[in-house]
Design a protein around this nucleic acid. Structure first.
Lengths: 175, 175
DNA sequence: TTGGAATGTCAACAAGACTGACATAAAGTG
DNA sequence: CACTTTATGTCAGTCTTGTTGACATTCCAA
């Protein structure tokens, strides 16, 4: 019980900013398990909403990033989502058929399809991200401002290089 | 470009410990996207190892938690993993058939099966968690000690109540 | 005009989740 | 002892989401 608290204190408080971290396998494993359980919570609320509509996480991801970067091309979306075009295409087809996403042929390059959310699509996006933001907001409040900064720092450091590029590019985009 | 850095600074530095958080939807969305991209990195290394062995994440999860709590019952594992017994059983069957997991009938309650890793199972577990820990260690080092504390705090606050119980119970177990 | 790039479609397949139904054995309870 | 509940396993079928491979279309660019 008290054992872990002790080692955690040692890491966080006894050592200063740029000093060596005291990283036991035990502490790393706790971080790993925390990621596992937290990700379940992270997706739980949207999953419930999606289940009612016979959609899955793949639909959520597509809707999220189309909303985030309206007019994005299919190829661009593929790179961000990290799936094959066939897999994405199946999801997009249902979303387009259901009137949540609109695909417009490119004007400068007519091979490209630019993706936009319809009103209905934007409404679902709002519903999904409201739920997810509520969870995130509660977690942030409970953990406190400094914790949030640390949280973001570690997550960013955990990404693959190319995902980190995609993330920071999106992050620094004024939406 | 600079816009986000400004708002982040405002949140993290201008306000003190117990003050109200300045939580814009923009900041929350960045946290959401950070979770998405980071989780990909989090699973990338084990996924590569597992792909060579024709195993998936489900096998990894089972192996991880059996290693974590040797002798755990099937029911216990079900609760932690949050899947159906049919789904877990399929994974366990292959792991037992491949000689990575051993299932022993309970002594006090003969209905229960207690799960253990074999030597081969423990070897794979070590290989997988070495890879995952290396990623985690690098991220922790890059982010710094205070960031690690904050990271863990936010993740814990993001869990569902029952997962949080499972997590802290595991966390506080001397392994 | 030819080659390559972007996109889409079809088919087949696999992992991994689900539900539902049923079997078995053991434990608990009246 | 009879009955119920619990723990586990299994069979069958479905769904989502991912994969590969093959092929067509469109169109830009050398």
């Amino acid at each position: 019980m008290g054992r872990d608290n002790m080692s955690e204190t040692r890491t966080a408080q006894a050592f200063g900013g740029e000093s060596l971290l005291f990283l036991t396998d035990e502490q790393l494993r706790q971080g790993i398990e925390a990621m596992f359980f937290a990700y379940r919570g992270f997706t739980a609320d949207p999953d419930r909403i999606l289940a009612e509509l016979a959609y899955g996480r793949a639909h959520h991801r597509a809707i999220h990033f189309i909303n985030r970067a309206p007019g994005t091309t299919v190829n661009n979306l593929l790179a961000i989502l990290g799936v094959t075009k066939q897999s994405l295409n199946r999801v997009l087809r249902t979303l387009i058929a259901d009137g949540l996403v609109e695909s417009r042929v490119g004007t400068v390059d007519k091979r490209e399809r630019h993706l936009f959310l319809t009103e209905a699509g934007a409404a679902l996006e709002a519903k999904l991200s409201d739920a997810q933001r509520a969870r995130m907001r509660a977690a942030y409040k409970e953990a406190g401002p400094e914790a949030v900064t640390g949280f973001r720092k570690v997550l960013e450091a955990m990404m693959d290089a190319d995902m980190r590029r995609a993330y920071t590019k999106l992050r620094d985009t004024t939406s």
